[in-house]
Amino acid sequence: MEHPHQEIREIRALHTASTITVYQAYDPAIGNPAVRHGRFPSTWRQNRMTWIKPSFLWMMYRSGWGTSEGQETVLAVEITRAGFDWALRHACLSSYVRSLYP
């Protein structure tokens, strides 16, 4: 039974008052320089479509435990809560849900 004040949807993630940690899988050509230098290399494109996950294990599963081509490097990325909220506002479902879009 749901608690009367429990949110229907919730995100469970490592967070502070101002940041949230998400996980992304990258090709080693992107991930390795990012780890070495603490920032993404110039070959990384900010406008590319991506999936971020608030759970490390979920990202590991979705990336084939780091064996899927182009997803061999899984990074923990700390972003601002404002940035995460922006991403949620601009996100879309990855599959069609008839009940949401009649």
Rank of each mutant, 00 (worst) to 15 (best):
P4F: 00
G66A: 04
V74N: 02
R9A: 03
L100R: 09
P28C: 06
H15P: 00
F40Y: 11
L100V: 11
H90A: 04
T21D: 14
D27I: 01
W65H: 11
E10W: 00
S99P: 04
W44S: 09
F56R: 12
T21F: 06
I20E: 02
P102M: 13
H5I: 00
I30G: 05
S55T: 09
V97N: 07
A17W: 02
S42F: 14
S68T: 10
E72T: 06
A17Y: 03
I79D: 03
M49C: 09
A87R: 08
P54S: 07
H90P: 02
I52Q: 06
Y96C: 09
G64Q: 08
A29Y: 12
W86F: 11
A87S: 13
R48S: 15
Q71K: 10
E78W: 03
R39P: 06
S18N: 11
R39K: 13
L57C: 09
I30V: 11
G66N: 03
C92R: 14
S68A: 12
Y96H: 13
V74A: 03
H37V: 05
Y101P: 00
H5K: 01
A17E: 12
A76Q: 08
E10K: 00
S68N: 09
L100Y: 15
P33F: 14
K53T: 13
T67N: 04
A17H: 07
P33H: 10
Q24L: 04
Q24N: 12
H90D: 07
M59P: 04
R48E: 14
P33Q: 09
W44C: 09
V35K: 06
L14P: 01
V77T: 04
I79P: 04
P28N: 06
S95M: 08
G64T: 08
H5Y: 04
A34E: 03
R81F: 03
W65F: 15
F84Q: 01
S94L: 13
T67M: 06
P33A: 11
R81Y: 02
T50E: 14
N32H: 08
R62G: 07
V74W: 02
P4C: 02
H37I: 04
S68K: 15
R39I: 08
N32Q: 13
S99K: 08
E10M: 00
I11Q: 02
A34P: 00
Y26E: 08
L75M: 10
Q71R: 10
R89T: 07
G66F: 13
H3G: 00
S94Y: 09
T50H: 06
E78A: 14
E78H: 07
Q6H: 00
S95R: 11
P28I: 06
V77K: 04
E78M: 14
I20F: 05
Y96Q: 07
I79F: 02
S63H: 05
M1R: 00
G64P: 03
P102Q: 14
V97K: 08
I11E: 03
H37Y: 08
T73D: 07
M59I: 05
F84W: 04
W65M: 15
W44H: 14
M1H: 00
E69M: 03
Q46F: 10
